[in-house]
Simulated assay, not measured.
Amino acid sequence: MTLHDSSKVYRPLSKDARIYIAGHRGLVGGAIWRHLEEEGFSNLIGATSSELDLRDRQATLEFFTKNKPEVVIDAAAKVGGIHANNTYPADFLSDNLLIQVNIMDAANAIGVDRLLFLGSSCIYPKFAEQPIREDSLLTGELEPTNDAYAIAKIAGIMQVQASRRQYGRTWISAMPTNLYGPGDNFHPDNSHVLPALLRRFHEAKEQNAPEVVIWGSGTPRREFLYVDDLAHACLYLLENYDSAETINVGVGEDISIRELAELVAKTVGYSGYIVQDTSKPDGTPRKLLDVSRLTNLGWKAEMSLEQGIAATYEWFLSHQDKLRAK
């Protein structure tokens, strides 16, 4: 589904523009908020989940009507790793559909012209040709362990495209690869692979455990993007990209889960054995994004994986007292 209406543009955002960041307390939204503040944006709008339940259609519309954002960044989502997605598919589908439909309908209702919807690389087919180009979307079956979440995100892309056609909006969507960094979810059951490994190896080191068991064969390959790099990309895209076609955001390199586990163990200082539990699912064999379109626009990630893991572990150590209760 290639839609060729893209050209490099430069439309700087006003530093005093009212910018609503949905999910501003999460991993992604928090990083975007920090970056925009650092760049001098002075009129950021946010609401915690206790202040605004984005699944509530009327409450969302009232929030938009009252705050009148000029730019919307949708970083709000119910997210989780392979275990959570596989265990609660109905929740992942329903909650994410409600959140994004309510945000975009409210944005259309008050005439928001600039919106960025953030999806996930899981939207692409399980066996898509590697690296995965944007035009691979809807060309094959999805990975069954997270297909419900993927369908919700695909619907979000469609709503962006539909709003461009029907209302003439300059809305865009971007598909980040696997994200990690400060503010990540380190829950032992519901986190993504990298923070889950960091916590597991840290606790194994503390307990002098002789081995750490990780899911699957260790052979699947994944790409990891430091969340602060994504935040930089979001502002860059809002100012330099205008197309109905979604655009990939990643680093263009991947690593096997086994290699990732070894790198995390090294960072943490764990020297025991790493054991593969091959009875557990692997998920998609490989998921590397083709980021050539973004590179050609003039943006690329800066943080190396080794540096990013070290920075994330440092954040984890300084926040672990709060994390232990989760």
Results as ranks from 00 to 15, higher is better:
Val9Lys: 13
Leu13Gly: 02
Arg18Gly: 00
Ile19Asn: 00
Ala22Gln: 05
Ala22Ser: 10
Arg25Gly: 12
Arg25Asp: 14
Glu37Met: 13
Gly40Cys: 06
Ile45Lys: 04
Gly46Val: 05
Leu54Glu: 02
Asp56Ala: 03
Ala59Arg: 14
Val72Met: 03
Asn86Phe: 11
Thr87Pro: 00
Asp91Val: 13
Phe92Lys: 10
Phe117His: 12
Tyr124Cys: 06
Tyr124Lys: 07
Asp135Trp: 08
Asp135Gln: 08
Glu141Gln: 15
Glu143Ala: 13
Tyr149Leu: 13
Lys153Cys: 03
Lys153Arg: 11
Ile154Gly: 02
Gln161Asn: 05
Gln166Met: 12
Gly181Arg: 02
His192Thr: 15
His192Ile: 10
Pro195Gly: 07
Leu198Trp: 02
Phe201Asp: 03
Glu206Asn: 09
Ala209Tyr: 03
Pro210Ser: 15
Pro210Val: 08
Val212Gln: 01
Ser217Leu: 06
Arg221Leu: 09
Arg221Asn: 08
Leu237Arg: 01
Glu253His: 13
Ser256Asn: 06
Gly269Cys: 06
Ser271Phe: 10
Gly272His: 07
Gln276Asn: 15
Ser279Thr: 15
Thr284Asn: 09
Pro285Ile: 07
Arg286Asn: 11
Leu289Phe: 00
Trp299Leu: 09
Ser304Phe: 10
Ser304Pro: 07
Glu306Trp: 07
Thr312Trp: 03
Thr312Gln: 02
Tyr313Gln: 03
Glu314Pro: 05
Trp315Ile: 03
Trp315Asn: 01
Leu317Gly: 08
